[in-house]
Design a protein around this nucleic acid. Structure first.
Length: 464
DNA sequence: TCTGGGGTCCTAGGACCC
DNA sequence: TCTGGGGTCCTAGGACCC
């Protein structure tokens, strides 16, 4: 008989804002909100102090500011979060080599191979040790759930957060799940919740009491069987430690809607450059190119094209994007543009014809995919020449043109020639306010500088 | 005061081939 | 000439997750 699985799920509490509070001592114990800070920004993470004011994930920043005007509003520092994440994942690796990292702040650990048959008291102690080690090493708090499956572990980590532990004893899965709202089951979002409510099912127990046929009738074959199994506490999914990416994309919501095709193409080229940079770094090529266009009214479409051969050529991909975008109406205003690639393979099929044509000086990149002649009305002939966006090539990776003042972002790490490391507390009207403190100092003093002060420079995030 | 950015998986229809 | 079924690929959209 197979040994019963023992799965641990770890979730770092209010991760982004917790890292900010560690790096910025003056913010400890205070409401901190990390997210986009523009008019169209949303909350990525609110600290627990901010959640008390009713601020939550995905809320618009404008609404958050109304509810909690005194919070610190910071733009994300992904480098710092990735660094903290690596430390935590390293600690998990000491417990078991079988880890599936779900995101920067979440992972499953399979204890079955290293701790077969471990009992509830022992696994409770182990999980507490892990939480303690994480806090000791990073200062972060984590919530952990332990159970006989990913499903139960995941739900467990949610039951006692923040800074908590739930061990679901084998055999008690159904009774633990039964009273929970259906929404707590993974895979049940607003739409599925609504459908189940319509049939009078509000708790996991109510779904479990129905037959699989009934649930399949409501949710369809695939989703229905999974949800019904989950409601019974049954989940046979294995951990998948190494998963290859299936797609890579970049998208951007503009500060105000765009109607100019050339401007849109400039943004497309910049984003495609990021996408190509990421796939070529991994030695990958892509066959399907997708654009995503969100209009002023939030209606969203995607358009895609699949090439005969995978490519990592920015020119080829841009040629594709141009044709896809040409067929989209933009005159009413575009709020968001995205570009993505899929059909990833780790080699480019050598295209003998392209190679031959390239040798003859006829660049095939400019001819793929099949060029259509019915170009959108109103475009001038020289649009083709400028359309790829020479302006984009003059920009730094952070989008700032060289030689222009930095657009200081709240939360950003900086270095002052005399005063040392600090972070941007706010900027505007030609002034930038910096607080000089770090992970290992007490709360530090604040000074204000001109935004173009030569003594002030962007800096790397502090290390752990 | 409208609603980010990075993904995964599923469905459904049409094209195309056998 | 009409009528099939199955399988695969492509495209578009939607639900969901962090």
């Amino acid at each position: 008989m197979r040994t019963r699985p023992v799965i641990l799920h770890l979730d770092l509490d209010a991760f982004f804002s917790a890292v900010e509070q560690l790096h910025k001592p003056s913010l400890r114990g205070k409401p901190v909100i990390v997210g986009g800070t523009g008019r169209r920004g949303v909350v990525a993470t609110a600290s627990y102090e901010a959640r008390r004011f009713g601020v939550g994930s995905a809320m618009s920043i404008v609404e958050a500011r109304r509810r909690c005007p005194n919070a610190a509003y910071l733009t994300p520092r992904f480098q710092a979060y990735r660094a903290a994440s690596r430390v935590v994942m390293g600690l998990l690796a000491e417990v078991s080599p079988v880890i599936e990292q779900m995101s920067v702040d979440e992972a499953y650990v399979d204890l079955t191979p290293t701790r077969p048959g471990i009992d509830v008291p022992a696994v409770t102690e182990l999980a507490e040790q892990v939480r303690h080690r994480i806090h000791e090493t990073t200062g972060l708090t984590a919530s952990i759930g332990v159970g006989t499956s990913k499903l139960v572990a995941k739900i467990g980590s949610d039951l006692n957060k923040p800074d908590g532990l739930t061990v679901v004893a084998p055999g008690t899965e159904r009774e633990v799940l039964a009273p929970l709202p259906v929404r707590r089951l993974p895979g049940i979002g607003p739409a599925t919740q609504e459908r189940l409510h319509k049939y009078g099912m509000h708790t996991v127990g109510e779904v479990a009491a129905a037959t699989e046929r009934e649930i399949v009738g409501i949710l369809g074959q695939s989703h229905g069987t999974a949800v019904h199994q989950h409601s019974l506490g049954i989940d046979n999914r294995e951990l998948e430690p190494e998963r290859d990416a299936k797609s890579v994309s970049a998208e951007e919501t503009f500060a105000s809607d765009l109607t100019d095709r050339r401007e849109l193409m400039d943004h497309a080229r910049r984003m495609a450059g990021r996408v190509v940079g990421r796939i070529t770094k991994d030695g990958l090529c892509a066959r399907t190119i997708t654009i995503k266009v969100r209009s002023y009214d939030f209606s969203t479409i995607t358009r895609s094209f699949t090439l005969d051969q995978p490519t990592d050529s920015l020119n080829k991909i841009m040629s594709c994007i141009r044709q896809l975008l040409d067929a989209v109406e933009v005159s009413d205003g575009i709020r968001l543009l995205g570009v993505g690639v899929a059909g990833l393979t780790d080699f480019a099929q050598t295209d003998l014809l392209s190679d031959l044509l390239a040798e003859l000086g006829d660049d095939p990149d400019e001819r793929l995919p099949d060029q259509t002649t019915d170009r959108t009305a109103g475009q001038t002939p020289d649009d083709t020449a400028t359309g790829f966006g020479w302006t984009a090539e003059l920009r730094d990776t952070d989008g700032t043109a060289p030689g222009t003042p930095h657009d200081w972002r709240p939360g950003q790490d900086v270095q002052h020639a005399e005063r040392g490391p600090g972070w941007v507390q706010g900027a505007g009207l030609g002034r930038v306010t910096v607080r000089f403190e770090g992970p290992h100092t007490g709360p530090g003093p604040v000074r204000t500088f001109r935004t173009d002060d030569p003594d002030l420079a962007p800096a790397e995030a502090p290390t752990w």
